[in-house]
Design a protein around this nucleic acid. Structure first.
Length: 216
DNA sequence: CTCCCGGCGC
DNA sequence: GCGCCTGGAG
């Protein structure tokens, strides 16, 4: 069985067990992008509270959010944690949107992935995972999102060494899988779901895991 | 107490 | 490479 066959079979196993994920949760591409920044090392439930606050104050638009003083923004996103840092990170992203496309997020779809990804990574506060989440889930670019769950799951299955870096792990998936936005979208979603419920940090609940047949 | 769909600055 | 940022749930 080749690496590609294994990764595709793992996808099938997770999808058969869990069904479609319908990701990313969010009512608009802009909301998805904001959620990607707010969820950095943070439980999604807390992000939902923060986004709810932004909606309640009717500022979940690029111009509306950018018009807020940073302290006001921080207070609104407080439930998401790291609120002072994240308020600044959101403003860096909004500043980029303003300068690059005059707040028209979807205009970024006209860029090539190769051109746009480095620009997104150049925004202070947006690293590779957040950048790829925005590119894939908000803008439909075919880039694979790697996160802590991906590292853990691949490590425990002997498919990646422990200190593999982001780009290497991303390449394992992108070299093996067909370039398919819907597949990348659902694959990462399934990894997160398995990571939360089975492939936990301290101990994996391997006995009941959808991927148990892929252990040595 | 640990963990959470990380990233930065030192 | 390490400390820091932070609230909320379990």
């Amino acid at each position: 069985m080749t690496q590609a066959d294994t990764l595709l079979a793992m996808y099938e196993a997770m999808h058969d067990a869990l069904g479609p994920s319908d990701w990313w949760p969010g009512d608009s591409p802009f909301e998805i992008a904001i959620g990607a920044i707010l969820t950095q090392n943070t439980n999604w439930k807390n992000v939902e509270r923060a986004i709810g606050n932004l909606k309640d104050h009717q500022v979940l638009t690029p111009e509306g959010l950018h018009s807020l003083p940073v302290d006001t923004l921080a207070e609104l996103i407080r439930p998401a944690g790291y609120y002072n840092i994240k308020a600044r990170r959101l403003r860096h992203f909004l500043q980029f949107l303003c300068e690059e496309v005059e707040y028209d997020l979807l205009a970024l779809k006209g860029y090539t992935l190769e051109d746009l990804r480095p620009r997104i990574l150049g925004i202070n506060g947006i690293g590779p995972e957040t950048a790829d989440a925005i590119l894939l889930y908000a803008l439909d670019f075919p880039t694979f999102v790697v996160d802590a769950y991906t590292h853990r799951m691949m490590g425990r299955h002997g498919l990646a060494y422990e200190d593999i870096d982001y780009n290497e792990l991303q390449s394992i998936f992108m070299d093996a899988l067909p370039e398919d936005v819907a597949l990348y979208n659902e694959y990462h979603a399934l990894i997160v779901r398995v990571g939360k419920d089975w492939c936990k940090k301290k101990v994996g609940l391997c006995e009941t895991c959808p991927l148990k047949h892929f252990l040595d």
